[in-house]
Write a protein that binds this DNA or RNA. Structure first.
Lengths: 343, 343
DNA sequence: GTCGCCGATGTGAACGTACACATCGCGACC
DNA sequence: GGTCGCGATGTGTACGTTCACATCGGCGAC
């Protein structure tokens, strides 16, 4: 009856913890903790014993316990929408890499909708995971409004916005990019230029449209109502079919490369030559754009750079550094063969 | 000296916890816990008081503490590589949605490389987060080998593989898809068919190549060494430039749509008509493929379906259900205009 | 009227870790 | 030679939650 009083059958195998390791290594649990946290004052011999014990047991630190006691999760939350798009996906990749290099991990949540409730629930979730910082890649206007309301208590940045809220935003200067694209078409002699835009509630779409309109008005050219699309190639195609029935323009600045692809498809079906009959400029420079028919003139955005900067900014803020750079990243016009001199 | 012994200045604001809520609501912390966990036996009036207290304090449950005590994190780990690609990105999106609907969240880790150490460290991280299940979207052969070695203790599935390890895999029947694509070209009268494949260590690339080779050999046609590419449009372009110098073939089955796009670009530069001179079939059916010049015949994969199934499978396993379906998803040949009868 | 049961609520412990502080041994210094 | 300091290690406690069990009041059945 010495041991049987407590039926010590470990029915469900418990993962080894820090005390198990300590027992095997013949040290106290605190010493194990020190090894795990790279404490300097450990005798090399002890260090080795502990390490051996860790390997022997297959011990892995329990992050939940760590997070609980330190209230540091070493996790950056990412709130995103539309991760299928090339831009966000590239940015997330860069963020993941940069975060990992700094010893941080990511917790990603997609927005099911841009409803306030959905945003709130996503932010709540991330906060309750005690994420130390937040990166928001959800370029709809509403998301930013909700975020302002929500009084987020951790450092956060929003990506791909347009300086709406400069203290928390890291952005590509989309207005500038749109102006470059439009300027390029004007320089080629075009005077009747259309714009196919993204969805109205997207901040980028709005910014590109603004850049387009301003450049036109600076050049004293006629402006016309942009078409509001949904970023897809299919939309570009159907918009093209519609617009080309009148064809009272000789150039189009399209809000992204996918829609530009669809538009070129429509041009082909109408027997129109690009750039002979119609010049087209896109936006984003997705890797495929260089191989469109014809290769697309477009505005390159460095999504990866933005992702890296976001992480650097947040980590700096976590270390207490302040006044870090929020300078916009400058996009770059890449001239290929879809744009040409007006005939 | 009643209260001053312990200098109760809360210098650093602590987030409210369950006991703070209990105090405000005038109940015990356990009652609060019951409210949080939807316990049935709570008086409506008490319920309301607790809810009010939660709102008043802005209380959010601490997931770390929860995970610690329950050893249930309500988190599914996702191990992935190449999330920028359309397929993985779509799958992850579907996984996130399905998981969220079931009350689960995602913890995503990208592989920095396919080295064993990198895989091990990624799995270790996810396990130490006490993820309850694992989804692996990293279609390199090596990853699977490492996974077998690693003795993962939680339920896991791998995505987009090809039945290498059927008990843990959910897969699109890529061999079948490749056969359909090849058969289509044969049916059109082509006898000299090239294949541009993906990277050699990708399981999908291998499977598509196998399907291609088997179909050719079933038809008693000459097989030739496939070109090993890297999935990018640029590779397709350069491969095209190289291959078209000889042009001892009239059709190409390309391992994915991006490379097919690049290849068509090369055809254009050579003054070759697609499908007049050369027929092309791709793989994946990315949304843009319908708008290529010409619209691409390709094999559609339902990535979202795979993602959903993966989550359903894992959740079933977590509930103790067994023998769930691992049937492959059947891909579908989408015939557009890039393939035509041999002239 | 009393017993037993059940609904509603409360108390003690545990999860695995890190931090603050305590302890111990040993060499150096005066 | 005693004390001081420091490197190396050990002990207590807190983090916020859930689980197992205890308690308490009321109601129905006999």
């Amino acid at each position: 009856m010495t041991d049987t009083e407590r039926p010590a059958e470990p029915e469900r195998v418990r993962a080894p913890n820090i005390r198990d390791v300590a027992r095997v290594a013949g040290v106290s649990y605190q010493t194990v903790s020190r090894v795990l946290n790279d404490s300097p004052s450990i005798r090399p011999e002890t260090l080795q014993r502990v390490r051996d014990a860790i390997d022997e047991l297959g011990y892995r630190p329990n992050q939940a316990a760590r997070a609980l006691v330190t209230s540091r999760s070493r996790t950056i939350g990412v709130l995103s929408a539309q991760t299928v798009h090339y831009g966000p996906a590239t940015a997330i990749n860069a963020i993941e890499t940069a975060a990992r290099e700094a010893g941080y991990r990511l917790s990603i949540t997609n927005l099911s909708s841009t409803e306030y409730a959905s945003i709130k629930s996503a932010v709540d979730y991330l906060i309750s995971q005690s994420v130390e910082a937040l990166i928001v890649i959800a370029p709809q206007v509403r998301v930013f409004e909700a975020l302002n309301d929500l009084q987020v208590s951790v450092p956060f940045v929003t990506l791909e916005a347009t300086g709406l809220n400069t203290s928390h935003s890291l952005w590509v200067d989309q207005v500038q990019g749109a102006r470059q694209a439009t300027r390029h078409l004007i320089d080629l002699g075009h005077t009747e230029i259309m714009h196919i835009s993204g969805p109205q509630d997207w901040i980028e779409a709005e910014a590109r449209m603004q850049g387009f309109l301003r450049e036109l008005s600076d050049a004293d050219l006629r402006t016309r109502a942009p078409i509001l699309g949904d970023w897809t190639a299919s939309f570009g195609y159907y918009a093209g079919i519609e617009l080309l029935r009148y064809r009272d323009f000789s150039a189009v600045f399209v809000g992204n490369d996918q829609m530009a692809l669809g538009f070129m498809h429509a041009c082909r079906e109408h027997g129109l030559d690009v750039p002979g009959d119609i010049s087209i400029v896109g936006f984003d420079d997705i890797p495929e754009a260089a191989h469109f028919a014809p290769p697309l003139t477009t505005v390159r955005q460095n999504f990866a750079e933005i992702g890296r900067r976001a992480v650097a900014l947040l980590l700096g803020e976590l270390r207490g550094e302040t006044g870090m750079s929020h300078e916009p990243v400058q996009p770059e016009l890449v001239i290929r063969e879809s744009s040409g001199r007006r005939r």
